[in-house]
């Protein structure tokens, strides 16, 4: 996160003229957003959404897609970063696509998020127990083991996955496969 100031030029000039302080507030910070997009269940709709991000220069940090309870609808979970102005543009551009049925920004709501990670790491006699200890702490599962490597499965919020990968980084990580974030609003 950075503290980039993103007031529009007109706002800055007006604030200056009115003698108001020009300070970035929380809404003007670059922030990670989790957006759920319900689209028609077709490859065309999926590509159109992704294409919009690249054509308009928005970021995608992760994207997952899968069919929902309604087989004609796909749910895309998109993680993107930007200040509030960029995010509101992202949401408007998404809503404007013909194939999008609903667009929800979960960021400021109460929601659960999960990600799945598979991680393959080299071990030897010295590191074996330390690696298993870390896994124990993160409550991962060993899904494959050879004389040289171990593969772990870990589920949880993206932050937990990142912390796990960080902890394993002191050993020789061979491969990391992450599913990308899925998220859902809690019922109040």
């Amino acid at each position: 996160m950075t503290d980039t100031l993103i007031l529009t030029p007109q706002q800055i000039i007006r604030k200056k003229a009115a003698g108001e302080p020009i300070q970035p507030d929380d809404s003007e910070m670059i922030q990670s957003h989790t957006i759920v997009v319900l689209v028609e269940n077709s490859i065309g709709a999926f590509i159109r959404v992704i294409n919009m991000f690249s054509a308009r220069g928005f970021n995608i940090d992760s994207v997952t897609v899968g069919v929902t309870e309604d087989p004609t609808v796909s749910r895309m979970n998109i993680v993107t970063t930007g200040n509030s102005r960029i995010i509101s543009q992202v949401l408007r551009q998404l809503s404007r696509l013909v194939d999008t049925i609903e667009v929800i920004d979960l960021t400021d709501t109460d929601y659960v998020e999960r990600e799945l990670c598979l991680l393959k790491v080299c071990y030897n006699r010295d590191s074996r127990s330390e690696i298993l200890d870390v896994n124990e702490i993160f409550r991962g599962k060993v899904v494959d083991i050879t004389s040289r490597t171990m593969t772990f499965e870990l589920r949880g919020p993206s932050k937990k996955i990142e912390a796990f990968i960080d902890m394993m980084a002191s050993h020789k990580i061979l491969e990391v496969a992450r599913s990308g974030r899925v998220a859902m609003q809690r019922d109040s």
Binding site: Q10, I13, A17
Partner: peptide, 11 residues
Amino acid sequence: KLDSWAPHAKV
């Protein structure tokens, strides 16, 4: 140049 366009205007 956006930052000096219509400096006094509300929109």
